[in-house]
Every structure is written in C-alpha cells, then in structure tokens.
Amino acid sequence: MLETVFAASILLLVLWAGCFVEVVRKVGKQLSPLRALYSSFRARCPYTAETLERFVEIWDMFMHCSDASLGFEDRFAIFCDQLGDFLEGLVQRAVDVLELFFQLDVADQQAALCRIPRRRLSSAEAAEGAGPLRMTACAICLCEWTKGDDVRELKVCSHVFHSRCADTWLWRHQKCPMCRTAIAT
C-alpha cells in the first residue's frame, strides 16, 4: 500500500514538472529575457542545466512521440523506464557527492593516488596496446589510445586507463575500476 502511494506521488510530481516544463517552453519562445536568463543559468550551472535538459528530452519523447504505432500505454511504459534510469543516475550522482563530502582520509587517498605512476603513451604503445596486457583502449571511456595520452598503469593488475578517466574513481575507491583489485599495498 505504501509503495503504491509513493509511486503515485512520484508520478504526480513528474507530471507537474512536465507541465511546468511545457509552460516554461511556450513562454520562453515568446520572451527573449527568459532565453537570456536560461543562457546565463546554463553557463553558471552546467550540471543542473544538463540534468534539466535530459528531463525535458525524456518528457518530449513522451509527449511528442513520432511513432504513431505506439499507444499511450506503450509510450507511458517507455517514459517510466527512461525516467527510472534518469532518476537512478541522479541518485548515484548524489551518493557520489556525499561520499566525497564525508571522506575522512583525504591525505591517505591523495598519497595512494600519487603512488600510481602517470605517463604518456608512445606511438608504439598506442598502436600495439598499452601495458603488459596490451590493452588497445581505455576500459572506462572505450576510446582507443593515441600517441601522448596521459595514462595510469595499475601495477597490481596491469590495467591501463586514461588518467582523466580513472583518477576520480581511484580517489574514491582505491580499487581498479575494471577488476576491483585494491591498489593500496
């Protein structure tokens, strides 16, 4: 019973937010000051603007579906599925922020990250694969190596990642993002 009430409350809030988005969009087409305000907001708060734009995208797919073969129930099921993924991503980001905020051993984490060597890939490594495992791409961003990429090679498991991709994960977890082997000796 409680789950039903909770689900209905979330649905009403989402529908309210969707209606609000529609009103703001229609008013925004008419008012250039509102567009300027949004541009300023987007420049100052890119994460929030990106989140809002993703919600608007999901709402648009639900309200203005171009596939005539989909009935309301099908569109609504797709909307709920996409909204669930969207909300799960928001919750995960909030948890990540809270983890960073309440970390206690910042000095230990910094020291552990500094013990993992950073280096630049040579053209041979970029072509043949990096590290002892001859990895041909970063397992986090899935981009293939290029000459001069800044990478970290984890000695305990020999996995190699772009520094920009792995540093946030390694700072928080001190484990390999791929095999979860602890990096601290």
Results as ranks from 00 to 15, higher is better:
158 S>N: 10
122 S>M: 03
125 E>G: 00
154 L>M: 03
128 E>K: 15
66 S>D: 09
101 F>E: 15
91 V>C: 09
75 R>Q: 08
67 D>A: 05
114 C>G: 06
156 V>P: 02
129 G>N: 02
108 D>T: 14
151 V>S: 01
84 G>V: 07
95 V>C: 14
83 L>S: 04
82 Q>D: 08
107 A>W: 12
94 A>G: 13
80 C>S: 14
102 F>A: 08
131 G>S: 03
150 D>V: 13
162 H>T: 01
95 V>W: 10
86 F>K: 03
108 D>V: 09
164 R>C: 11
101 F>P: 05
92 Q>N: 13
119 R>G: 05
151 V>T: 01
80 C>M: 13
94 A>H: 12
123 S>A: 09
76 F>A: 10
140 I>N: 01
123 S>I: 10
73 E>Q: 13
140 I>W: 04
72 F>C: 07
148 G>D: 03
128 E>P: 06
139 A>I: 03
123 S>C: 09
108 D>C: 07
110 Q>D: 10
105 D>P: 06
79 F>W: 04
163 S>N: 07
125 E>S: 01
152 R>K: 15
99 E>K: 10
70 L>S: 08
130 A>T: 01
139 A>M: 07
78 I>C: 08
91 V>G: 07
132 P>G: 08
111 A>G: 06
112 A>D: 05
156 V>C: 12
111 A>S: 12
133 L>F: 01
84 G>R: 08
146 T>V: 15
154 L>W: 02
68 A>S: 12
102 F>I: 09
88 E>S: 13
129 G>Y: 00
77 A>I: 11
115 R>M: 08
66 S>E: 15
129 G>Q: 02
65 C>Y: 06
109 Q>Y: 06
139 A>E: 11
148 G>M: 03
74 D>L: 14
115 R>C: 08
85 D>S: 12
63 M>K: 14
80 C>V: 14
143 C>W: 13
142 L>A: 10
67 D>P: 03
164 R>T: 10
107 A>S: 15
158 S>A: 09
80 C>G: 10
92 Q>S: 10
145 W>I: 00
135 M>L: 15
112 A>K: 03
109 Q>E: 09
68 A>Y: 11
146 T>P: 04
78 I>P: 06
124 A>Y: 07
105 D>E: 14
126 A>L: 04
162 H>P: 00
134 R>Y: 04
156 V>D: 07
80 C>Y: 11
157 C>W: 02
107 A>P: 06
76 F>V: 06
85 D>A: 09
138 C>A: 05
91 V>D: 15
76 F>G: 04
159 H>V: 00
76 F>E: 06
100 L>K: 14
135 M>P: 01
69 S>N: 05
100 L>R: 13
131 G>Y: 03
107 A>I: 14
99 E>I: 06
78 I>A: 12
121 L>K: 01
119 R>L: 04
112 A>S: 08
98 L>C: 15
125 E>N: 00
116 I>P: 00
82 Q>W: 05
